[in-house]
Nucleic acid binder design. Structure first.
Lengths: 244, 244
DNA sequence: CGTTAGTTTGATGGTCCTCAAGCACTGTGG
DNA sequence: CCACAGTGCTTGAGGACCATCAAACTAACG
């Protein structure tokens, strides 16, 4: 923790691009409008337009789509340092909703501010594009999981990915992590019923692999879980700055 | 067709940003290294690093991931005007493979050229980010389909989306479109078995909704199909330039 | 102490997979 | 010209995986 005053996003981007003083200043200015949101009440709902984007600094959010038949599909989770609604701003109309899982803290970023920042600092734009690319890689991996993994591997993969993301920002490890999600969240994420989620969790627990209980995920046999899920964290890794 | 000499990508981006002469020149320079690829042989395979990105000008490509158990999941298709491998370049290692469905023509874009272009023309960078966002919106919709739609609705939705994309570049309509995909492609796209794909296609055909036969998709009852799939093309639309 | 949100378990059945086999079409070589 | 292989499409039978329905249980909370 060399630089405790940097925002999580700044830390994340700094791993990709060595940002200049000017660029850091522009990024800092994007963080000015700080807001908090209570758990459970959508920050943005699908179809809404002319809304802002946010940079999440504390708490968990999920982005999801609702269908006419009442089911919902959670597409992704955002944890501190993640952008939220970036695509919606560029497309001008949100194609999903964002729901805080717990009370969160976020910086509001107006579309105009974002576009100005991009115009002033192209390298910052590239860095943010990189972050967006990494997020998309996670969505792709999620897609593969739902399409081609059975429920057990899907669950294992999801928990491992989440653990890795949190470990990167220092709030998780190979031992486990604190997790505010319910089994309904898992069901809507993995394309399963809540009942089946419960059964799968029991199987994984009884095999001594992982426990999901009391707002905490505990890995009992990390290696075996990685093998079961065929988990390859390459798509999450950043091996060093691309731009100098 | 005012400007037949523009590349499909240029046409697509021009709908988003009114590009200056300089920006058009930079974009044009990205198209210099033209190449062709034969059908069926991967252009890029997963795990490969230090490869280029491509701008597709003719033909169809699919991007997919292979799993250790031998199954594959097609993530997306690229049609003329689409970028290909953009994310892989930024992350420096490809997380999927790209396979030409038919013989294709594409412009090779080196990572350095792309980054230089971004540095020279920030607005072009924003435009390309917009295109990437639209692609991601399609992946998200794909995810929702696999997670929360049954096989029939999933198939209907996929065919409608494909039709809409092709209609935007002038090679498809509400009547239908030419389609080089096999039922195996559909299976790997939709997370189904090829056998079940065949049965679903038969159902849709027997209900008088759509026919998939002889390299051609024919819509018989567009409205009913839209209703069955709960298809809402909002995520594909572009209602006008965001930047002036 | 009733209510609500979340978890757990059982029973039953449907969607979709797997295995298996046959058919149509195309291109290739004897 | 025809045998044959290869690719893709089609259909049937049986079964696995997971959804749905139902109900009991726990913990938190006013």
């Amino acid at each position: 923790m060399k630089s405790v005053e940097l925002s999580p996003l700044t830390r994340k981007l700094s791993a990709f691009v060595a940002l200049s003083k000017d660029e850091l200043a522009v990024l800092d200015r994007l963080h000015q409008r700080r807001r908090t949101f209570v758990a459970g009440r959508d920050m943005v709902h699908q179809g809404q337009s002319a809304h802002a984007a946010y940079i999440l600094s504390a708490g968990w959010v999920c982005s999801y789509k609702l269908q006419a038949n009442g089911t919902r599909q959670i597409v992704d989770f955002q944890v501190p340092g993640d952008f939220l609604g970036l695509r919606s701003v560029l497309l001008r109309t949100s194609d999903h909703s964002f729901e805080p899982i717990v009370e969160i803290e976020a910086a509001e970023v107006l579309a105009s501010d974002l576009l100005n920042a991009f115009a002033q600092t192209p390298r910052l734009a590239t860095a943010i594009l990189w972050a967006a690319s990494r997020d998309e890689a996670m969505v792709v991996e999620h897609l593969v999981g739902i399409g081609r993994r059975d429920a057990e591997a899907r669950m294992a993969h999801f928990l491992l990915e989440l653990g890795s993301r949190l470990a990167l920002v220092g709030i998780g490890s190979r031992e486990g992590f604190d997790c505010p999600l319910t089994q309904y969240h898992l069901a809507d994420t993995l394309g399963l019923s809540a009942v089946h989620v419960n059964r799968v969790l029991r199987q994984l627990r009884e095999q001594g692999l992982v426990t999901f209980r009391d707002d905490r995920v505990t890995f009992h046999d990390f290696g075996a879980l990685v093998e079961l899920a065929e988990f390859d964290p390459a798509y999450l890794d950043q091996t060093g700055p691309l731009l100098k």
